[in-house]
Each structure stands twice: as C-alpha cells, then as structure tokens.
Amino acid sequence: ADAPWVVKPEEKMKFDTIFESLGPVGGMLSGDKVKPVLLNSNLPVDILGRVWELSDIDRDGMLDRDEFSVAMFLVYRALEGESVPMSLPPPLVPPSKR
C-alpha cells in the first residue's frame, strides 16, 4: 500500500501543467474537457473509454489532478504500445486515494 506511485515526480509535473492548461473548475476537469485531449492521442475510443474507467477512481465523471495523471500515464503507455490493464494495478493508484 505504501509502494511508490508509478507516476514519477517529473511526469507528474508535466501532467499537472497540462491539467492546469485545461482550466479546471474547483480542482476538477469535467469529461467534456478531458475527452478532446484523450481523443488527440488517436487511440481507439474503446481504449480511451477504459482509460477513463481506470482513472476516474471515484466515478464522479470528473478528474482531479491525480486522476488526470493516471489517465495521461495510461495514454502515454498505450502510445508506446503497452496494453491498458482491465483494472488499475495498486502501484498506479495515487497515494491520495489508497
């Protein structure tokens, strides 16, 4: 449970910068703000749907900055040819949500 988050600090900084650039409201990004960013990856929509399922950990239809980092991490991994897991591996769960 105390394993280090797989999102490295330098990656987190990059993802946080993207997060802020999208105009979060109350520290959250709605699905309609995140969707075009993920679509921009040109990954299949069913893959992106799974990325969303895994990253919206509290299933409120919004991503906070940690959830957004999970989404971006999975998208970058998928672009490198790695498969998106069916469920979120514990090391990918943000420490704030364990």
Binding site: G31, K35, L38, W52, D60
Partner: peptide
Amino acid sequence: QYPAGGSSTNPFL
C-alpha cells in the same frame, strides 16, 4: 446506451 455495470459518467461510452 451503457453496458451492464458500466458507468454513465464515462464520456467515451
């Protein structure tokens, strides 16, 4: 339409 057990909060469904 959402799959059984799916989330209506998913913007990709």
